[in-house]
Design a protein around this nucleic acid. Structure first.
Length: 597
RNA sequence: GCGCCCGUAGUUCAAUGGAUAGAAUAUCGGAUUCCGGUUCCGACGAUUGGGGUUCGACUCCCCACGGGCGUACCA
């Protein structure tokens, strides 16, 4: 039972006794007292002043009096306007600390076979180019969100839908056939996804040149006409048709080249430290979508136009008409998502589906939700589009056309390299094996990257500054990692020293210590709130606040030099719980923390 | 045009409708002969503008201004 719930319960009793108000203890909100007032928790009494028909000060005074007299954990109180500041019995905090330190999985809720089943989709790449910085935000958010939801007591299935078919991959295939001269990742030493990306770019280059030539020959030609006349584009379309018809040669090429891409993606995911429980491929789901749409058509939920195309009328929901099948019977993006939904629901009894997809697709998911609901998916109406903003650079937006896109692999390599340079400059890793040094650089470099991308409210566009992110000071991953490493150092020294430990039950912690214990006690509710509001940023900012709070404590309170065995033992317990909580919080963000750095 | 999202210190980010809007960074000043000087403390500095609802508004509503995204038989 948390201190908040204890006091909320007593407050409900006070309200009933003093004013005859029936208040649900869960609805009574307590906040941490601002540091310029005496107290640990603050109750805002405004909600009841009308019913009590008294001045805010008087209500606060009366409730405070009642709590001080009747609730043992409240030792005294003061009133400022409508704010009732409560001082908790100091010894309560040491017993709370003792309790927390006994919990091996502090902050993590248990999961049972009956827990809700949540599926989280993230990454969802196209197979024609390597992953970039924008994908990194997507993947890190999805992975972290999955961990947070699991920590909130959900069964979580992490999933990825790979867009492996379509005109885009045909462009790469065609360019490779024409100009590749049999190049493979092995023969060139280029990572598979990058190699395919190179051919995609090459196609575009030739295509642009062709359009240019067409328009020079015939200046009156519009862009659309030129595109229609392009032989390269016609060849790509022909290849897509051949693919759909199952042409063995095209299929073999497609499988080989996609295979290269998957090897490349796997390497990227592995380095990022993320994974999936189930991967879906659009080539295996798009036909299902078509079926589902035709089924909906039969039931009269959709309609067919004269040209044969199939549409959904969403005007009743304030939206437009939406195309689901082209006149030639082929699928569009929406149809594929319906097909994927169908197969997923067949594979898992999903209670809730969360799509981690950029905010440029808000409209798409609004429509998808309505359509899935109409087509009979129980979770359709309540599907969650976890919509996140774009990542920009200090120099501005990334534009593929201008070649300013930051490649995910390159960025990770740079971050790790910088981390390595910084630590070797400081000489902190002297005496470590090369493997240990490399591992720590990996943790710090990627920790910096991940933390920076996750600490911002996901909905907002953000600016990624690589230089700032790896700073060992400020609101950064390395700062938190460093704090953890330092606590580990203290704990190691304590273990080696053989100093006696003592029972600290009933000890009265100092204000500095209470502040930190209170912060530690907040952790479970922060995890719950992060899960409720789908926000890894809450966890990130909590970890930072905790690290900062610990540094103040560390500065003010000597640990190993403390001669009182009880006080020292308590401070070591605070340190131990802080280190573990930092580790858990960072783990929820998918960030590893080193014991030394 | 219509729809959705966002506007907070120089900059990057916080703030379930609650007290004097918090951090970081940058700049300036200070502390710590100490368990890791990658620490701590202080100063400076902001809610785009105008109305409204409320005991109380960065937060909710309306208008304006500024930025982003969408409004594809691309995915």
């Amino acid at each position: 039972m948390t201190i908040e719930s204890i006091i909320a319960k007593s407050t409900a009793a006070a309200l009933k006794e003093l004013y005859g108000i029936e208040a649900d203890p869960a609805s009574i909100q307590l906040q941490t007292t601002r540091k310029d007032f005496e107290g640990d928790l603050t109750l805002v009494v405004f909600p009841w002043v009308k019913i009590a028909r008294k001045a805010p000060q008087a209500v606060a005074q009366e409730i405070g009096r009642w709590l001080a007299d009747n609730e043992p954990v409240v030792s005294r109180f003061n009133v400022a306007g409508g704010f009732l500041n409560l001082v908790v019995e100091p010894a309560f905090w040491s017993s709370l600390l003792e309790n927390i330190s006994k919990q091996p999985d502090y902050g993590i809720a248990p999961v049972t076979a009956e827990s809700p089943l949540v599926m989280v989709e993230y990454s969802s790449p196209n197979t024609n180019k390597p992953l970039h910085l924008g994908h990194l935000r997507n993947i890190l958010l999805g992975y972290s969100l999955s961990k947070i939801l699991a920590a909130c007591g959900n069964r979580v299935v992490k999933t990825n839908i790979v867009n492996d078919r379509g005109i885009h991959i045909c462009k790469s295939m065609l360019a490779w056939k024409k100009w590749g001269e049999g190049a493979t990742p092995e023969s060139t030493g280029i990572k598979g996804d990058h190699l395919i990306g190179d051919y995609y770019v090459l196609f575009d280059k030739h295509y642009k040149a062709e359009l240019q030539a067409l328009k020079e020959r015939n200046p009156s030609m519009t862009d659309d006409e030129a595109a229609a006349a392009s032989t390269l584009m016609q060849e790509a379309r022909a290849m897509l048709r051949a693919w759909e018809e199952g042409d063995p040669e095209v299929r073999a090429l497609w499988e080989m080249m996609n295979g290269w891409v998957y090897d490349g993606f796997d390497a990227t995911y592995r380095r990022m430290g993320v994974d999936f429980d189930k991967i879906y491929y659009e080539s295996q789901t798009y036909l299902e979508g078509k079926e589902k749409v035709l089924e909906g058509l039969e039931k009269g939920l959709l309609y067919r136009k004269e040209d044969g195309s199939v549409w959904a009328d969403l005007t009743a929901d304030g939206l437009d008409h939406k195309l689901l099948l082209r006149a030639d019977g082929t699928s569009v993006y929406m149809t594929q998502d319906i097909g994927t939904a169908k197969i997923r629901y067949r594979d898992y009894p999903i209670d809730k589906m969360i799509y981690v997809v950029g905010n440029e697709q808000n409209y798409h998911f609004q429509v998808l939700s309505l359509l899935l609901d109409r087509l009979g998916f129980s979770w359709g109406k309540s599907l969650v589009h976890f919509s996140y903003g774009m990542v920009e650079l200090p120099e501005g937006k990334m534009k593929s056309r201008e070649g300013t896109v930051v490649d995910a692999d390159d960025l990770m390599a740079e971050m790790v390299d910088t981390a390595l340079q910084v630590s070797s400059q400081l000489g902190k890793l002297d005496g470590f094996t090369p493997e240990q040094v490399a591992d720590i650089a990996e943790m710090v470099g990627l920790g910096a990257l991940k933390y920076f991308l996750l600490k911002v409210d996901p909905r907002k566009n953000m600016t990624f500054n690589p230089k700032e992110s790896i700073d060992f000071n400020g609101n950064t991953g390395p700062f938190i990692q460093y704090t953890h490493a330092r606590i580990c150092s203290v704990l190691r020294k304590a273990a080696e020293s053989g100093m006696p430990t003592a029972d600290y039950t009933g000890l009265q912690p100092s204000q500095r210590e209470i502040t930190l214990i209170q912060r530690l006690a907040d952790f479970p509710s922060v995890v719950a709130e992060a899960g409720r509001s789908y926000s890894p940023a809450l966890i990130a900012n909590y970890a930072y606040d905790l690290a900062k709070e610990y540094n103040q404590f560390y500065h003010d309170c000597s640990i190993m030099r403390e001669t009182d065995d009880r006080v020292r033992t308590m401070r070591l317990a605070i340190s131990d719980v802080t280190a573990r909580t930092i580790r858990t919080a960072m783990d929820l963000l998918g960030i590893r923390v080193p014991d030394r750095m």
